[in-house]
Design a protein around this nucleic acid. Structure first.
Length: 841
RNA sequence: GCCCAGGUGGCGGAAUGGUAUACGCGGUAGUCUCAAAAACUACUAGUCGCAAGGCUGUGUGGGUUCGACUCCCUCCCUGGGCACCA
């Protein structure tokens, strides 16, 4: 410990150099110094093979496309880092990696806009992003970064594709898919929001194209069931649940009159199956043509389908409120009622859901409207209890549906029973009668994985005339993405690589004959669906990931990221993890044990966006105020999962706070007791002891619950208390700095050194609080008259235990006497240590 | 339409059945200074009052309770998710 020149207590205003340390807080100087020192000492690079108590602290890696990292990214990373540092200071070996999700449409679109080749753009972005990421003071392990666009990474993305193909989970099919005319590629369902491309907001068209899919639907039930096993933000779980969209019901099966064809139709409300009076089929359904072929209906029906398809192709269709339809001339032999019911083509039937054929009745809003519009007969079988209402339903005045206490009339076996309670029995009945079978339907579709773009891993498949699709042999991986000048998307349904025979001309891996490579690349979300496995294995070239390390470090202990990935990245990652589990490559099914979604940072109340030009880049703030100030400010704006509002004046306030802490430590250090210990003890007064313990409890509790805003408020209160004290004990400084360390790592480290402690504060244990000290402190008890606050009492906690004495003391206070005068006390309620309430007349 | 968050001073927010507005920002006054900035000190929900003190107050209206920002019901608003899903 350096010798100190003694300074007087009010020396805060006089700047002096003490033993070479400038008394004024200079953030950029100390931040660079400690960042360098931390990296040299490798305090954030745990030994992945030997670490005890491993803790994998992950945050979603950024797309490094745009102008650079903005404060929104920094907010997420800082919040995640505070948690990681908190775990490290509880003795965990924290692994906190970072990388770049640099492949994909997002980055490529940016490169096109900036008129740079994506390869070149990636190089620039990487440099810029890593520089920024280093400046924010996170405890990243810089020895293990991952960039999805590097061959050593995407080699394994391709390998993963091949594993899925071999397991029968990757397949090709022609299907109506979403196509973005601006990005000139197909998109997955998850990447279309309200009919618009999530990247560029163009209207997504429907096109019939031959594409690669991953069979995520096979995992629908497990993806759903797994949600109850993991500790995730509830809103994300709900979003996934809704996206998977499981709906249970029955599949009914009936013959078409005069044809040797049976139709199956899904019904999620089987209770009213006796009400079916017509059937509708989706316009895209292949069977429609079979129904009308050679009949008088063929021409009008096919015309109708053409019109509807046109409307659907521009996705304008959902704007149409009125359902449209046309009669096919065919009937279904509906055995339950013994009637032949007409089959219509209807615009509102969805080809991709259920069987594309719907059984229709008076008890469904859309069916009801459709039937009324086209004069199709309806036959209600369920009625309200109220006879007046029941008559209205009978007269088809309105559609009666989903009524919990609706009374069934048919079938006779269930007459008089309630809709709500009869469901299970009806399903059983339908099965017994042989009308159909219980079944579930899902909203989830298979994951469309191919993209007709350049900037991604080429899909490692080869097409051979004789042997059909063959995977590239693993020894030939990676299929390198060649550098081509004409990388821009074509919009023809073909990827840019399709213009490069030197790329696609190859030999079939099986028969060695002439063959053609797949020229599409895979979706970016495949790159990011497994990166958390690669982080622990970046030094390994022979495997996608090291099984032993994965066993040691995964599943991820804490994952922090944006809720916008609820049904994208977070669902895909779970799916890929389950696939790898089933392939016997890993032992767990869920990749992220705990996930928390961070909130959004807005600027002066408005969402940050490029078009508004209000994106805040952290660099200038870090330069001016330091990363510590910006970190604390961002964390202080609100609860971490709610986000906050970025205001310049706010960060100035935080900067002031850190300066005050700095000044306090420097100013009061001469009054501290040093470790050798004078008689004044290592601790301060009793009051100080209580305050310290209270602060430890509050701050550690809040950080653990990601309530950083109140943790900082607690630290400020502690500062305010300490600065009012004449003497501050060394332990009080130690506690202050340790609690500050996760939030403001640089200044805490600097001051830690200044008070003579050993490097590094980030390898210390957080202090424990002593509950018995808290219990022994003074309490303030509120005195109420009829629930209104009329005074307070300050007593020891011992005293507070005695109701009679508290009551006596309260009654004796002058203020209370006044209120109790000439009143009859009816009741006295005493809540120990908190409140005493006199209920009077 | 269904589901999930949320609505508290001039502003960000705190308090999840027991002293509403912690902490910070902003503001006002003061100290220091030739002056300014910085820093520091005090005050800062509204309202009535010289004051002591009183009254009102957590989106709306009601309820439960000795006591409600907190629990229950009604409605309104904001943000997010799902949506011709049969």
């Amino acid at each position: 410990m350096p010798k100190l020149k003694s300074i007087t207590a009010d020396a805060g205003s006089r700047l002096k150099t003490i033993s070479g340390i400038n008394e004024k807080h200079n953030p950029s100087e100390i931040e660079l110094k400690w960042q360098k020192r931390w990296e040299e000492a490798k305090i954030y690079s745990p030994n992945l093979d030997k670490a005890q108590k491993p803790f994998y602290n992950l945050m979603m890696f950024p797309y490094p496309s745009a102008e650079g990292m903005h404060v929104g990214n920094m907010y997420a990373f800082t919040g995640a880092d505070v948690y990681g540092r908190f775990q490290r200071m509880q003795g965990k070996a924290v692994f906190e990696p970072i990388g770049l999700d640099g492949f994909g449409i997002h980055s490529e679109n940016y490169a096109i806009k900036a008129n740079k080749h994506p390869v070149e753009q990636a190089r620039t972005s990487e440099k810029n992003f890593y520089r920024q990421l280093k400046s924010i003071g996170n405890g990243f392990d810089w020895t293990r970064t991952v960039e999805t666009y590097k061959p050593e990474y995407y080699k394994w993305t391709q390998w993963l594709f091949i594993q899925l193909f071999k397991a029968g989970l990757a397949y090709r099919k022609k299907a109506p898919v979403n196509f973005c005319p601006s990005c000139k590629t197909v998109l997955a369902d998850e990447q279309v929001e309200d009919g618009l491309c999530e990247r560029c907001n163009s209207i997504a068209e429907k096109r019939d194209l031959d594409q690669w899919f991953f069979k995520i639907t096979k995992y629908a039930d497990r993806l759903l069931a797994g949600l109850s096993q993991i500790d995730w933000a509830e809103k994300v779980k709900t979003a996934q649940k809704q996206w998977i969209g499981k709906s249970e019901g029955v599949n009914l099966r009936f013959k078409i009159k005069d044809m040797d064809i049976h139709f199956e139709m899904f019904d999620s409300v089987p209770q009213t199956f006796m009400a079916q009076t017509f059937t509708v089929i989706a316009p895209e359904h292949k069977m429609v043509y079979e129904l009308v072929k050679g009949t008088e209906h063929e021409k009008p029906v096919m015309e109708f389908i053409k019109t509807i398809k046109k409307k659907k192709s521009i996705n304008k269709f959902d704007l149409e409120k009125k359902p449209e339809g046309i009669f096919t001339g065919r009937y279904l032999e509906y055995t339950p009622t013994g009637k032949s019911i007409p089959i219509w083509v209807a615009s509102y039937a969805i080809y991709g859901y259920g069987t594309g054929v719907v059984n229709c009745s008076a008890h469904d809003e859309r069916d009801f409207i459709f039937a009324k519009r086209y004069g199709i007969s309806l036959h209600p079988v369920m009625f309200p209890k109220d006879p007046v209402e029941a008559k209205k339903v009978k007269n088809l005045e309105y559609c009666y549906h989903h009524a919990e206490d609706g009374i069934l009339q048919e079938p006779v076996e269930f007459k008089g029973r309630k809709w709500e309670e009869v469901r299970g029995d009806i399903v059983h009945y339908i099965e017994k009668q042989g009308y159909g079978k219980a079944q579930a339907q899902y909203h989830l579709r298979d994951w469309l994985i191919s993209r007709q773009r350049y900037w991604g891993p080429p899909i490692p498949m080869i097409y051979c005339q004789t042997c059909s699709w063959q995977p590239v042999q693993e020894k030939d991986l990676p299929v390198k993405l060649p550098f081509i000048e004409d990388y821009k998307p074509l919009g023809t349904g073909q990827a840019p690589l399709a213009s490069h025979p030197e790329f696609y001309k190859t030999k079939c891996p099986k028969c060695k004959g002439d063959a053609k490579r797949e020229t599409d690349v895979s979706d970016t979300f495949l790159d990011s669906a497994w990166y958390f496995l690669r982080y622990v294995s970046t030094d390994i070239e022979t495997m996608a990931f090291d099984t032993e390390r994965v066993k040691k470090w995964l599943p991820v202990n804490m994952y922090v990221g944006g809720a916008e990935h609820s049904v994208l990245h977070l669902l895909y990652s779970r799916f890929i993890t389950m696939c790898l589990h089933d392939l016997g490559l890993i032992s767990f099914e869920e990749p992220f044990t705990k996930f928390r979604a961070h909130g959004l940072i807005v600027k002066d109340g408005a969402k940050m966006s490029k078009s508004k030009g209000n994106i805040v880049v952290p660099d200038a703030y870090i330069k001016k105020f330091g990363a510590d100030s910006l970190r604390c400010y961002l964390m202080f704006t609100g609860p971490f999962d709610m986000g906050g509002n970025f205001r310049d004046s706010g960060i100035e306030g935080m900067s002031r706070f850190l300066k005050r802490v700095w000044a306090l430590v420097h100013r009061k250090k001469d009054s501290m007791n040093n470790k050798s210990g004078s008689k004044k003890s290592l601790l301060g007064s009793n009051e100080a002891l209580v305050f310290m313990n209270k602060t430890i409890k509050k701050v550690t509790g809040d950080i653990g619950n990601l309530k950083y805003n109140t943790a900082i408020a607690g630290l400020m209160e502690y500062y305010n208390f300490l600065s009012s004290q004449k003497y501050i004990a060394i332990e009080e400084f130690r506690v202050l700095l340790k609690l500050l360390a996760p939030l403001a790592p640089h200044i805490a480290e600097e001051l830690w050194e200044y008070i003579g402690e050993k490097f590094s504060i980030h390898q210390q244990f957080l202090p424990d609080f002593n509950e018995s000290i808290l219990k022994a402190s003074y309490l303030t008890i509120a005195i109420q008259i009829n629930g209104k606050l009329r005074g307070v009492l300050t007593v020891t906690s011992q005293f507070s235990k005695d109701k009679d004495r508290v009551e006596q003391l309260a009654k004796e206070s002058d203020k209370i006497k006044k209120y109790l005068k000439a009143k009859e006390i009816k009741k006295i309620i005493y809540i120990e240590g908190k409140v005493i309430n006199f209920v009077v007349t």
